[in-house]
Design a protein around this nucleic acid. Structure first.
Lengths: 150, 150
DNA sequence: CTAGCCGGTTTCTGATGGAAACCAGATAGC
DNA sequence: GCTATCTGGTTTCCATCAGAAACCGGCTAG
């Protein structure tokens, strides 16, 4: 996940602005936002919030995620202190992921987002169709290149 | 932004599950979540929420975004019905982006996320350092596997 | 005539995501 | 013994994507 060639001068370096503001800088806040505003992060946290889960259970639950990305994402969630990883020396090795208090706090913030998505899906689809109707039929065949300017 | 080769069978196809559930499917809900759980989307919406903004003003405000991505993201926000785009035939052409009511609603949901990030940055950095301390010196010695088991 | 601002689009390239194969340990089946 | 399977991953390969920078077109200022 986000690793960053960030040519990043620390955010205090610039005189013009010095807010702990996520918009302006390469401040930690921004780096953090880059990481949590991620589709898999949101889904994972919300699922793990329901209780400790095992690797393959997660993979099955969140269809469409690949092992690689799942493992990467879990690793960074663990690093960030959002989840804990516990391995049990059972039969074929069991690994259980669970939320930390910090992770739970974040998940509580993320939950509303998922709910919002569920609630407003129809409106957005309508908007998309309206937009497409407005732009596409404009000139017959707009190639993928799509330059609508005259 | 997310465009997909989605090999997507419609989500009603499977009998076992038929929830409008973002976790399981290629349901519209999931597609939507894929789009709004994006770092630039969050930043843009929160900035535009403050009031109508022009293209270059956004570019300056959100340092680090490229024109290409800014323009792409704005286009998809417009398509999704979150922002409006108004061009004024002024001197060197002015384009103003503003939130729609739908966009405002989403931004209200996203705001807490940004606030959360700002509030918990320190904890996360601490967790990261602790994690790195735990794993980095790990090379040869420790058979990693399990820390604790039941 | 050159220079510059605005809002983009195009080009090139390095990072990233996904599919699938492979790995390692252990149990189950034949 | 040999193969198959389950676990949780890592590796490989490839297509896409994000970012940097250049370019574009309209118009104005010098």
């Amino acid at each position: 996940m986000g690793l960053h060639p960030a040519p990043t001068p620390p955010c205090g370096g610039d005189a013009s602005v010095h807010l702990p503001d996520p918009f302006d800088a390469r401040c930690p806040t921004r780096l953090l936002l880059d990481r949590i505003a991620d589709k898999w992060t949101v889904l994972l946290l919300v699922v793990i919030m329901e209780g400790p889960v095992r690797f393959n259970a997660l993979k099955r639950r969140i269809r469409g995620i690949s092992q690689k990305v799942l493992s990467q994402t879990l690793k960074s969630l663990e690093r960030d202190g959002f989840v804990t990883r516990r391995a049990f020396a059972t039969v074929p090795v069991t690994v259980e992921y669970a939320l930390t208090p910090l992770g739970r706090s974040l998940a509580d913030t993320l939950g509303p987002l998922a709910q919002w998505a569920t609630a407003h899906v129809a409106e957005i689809e309508a908007a998309q169709m309206a937009f497409d109707r407005r732009t596409a039929p404009d000139h017959a065949a707009e190639a993928p290149g799509m330059r609508r300017t005259a």
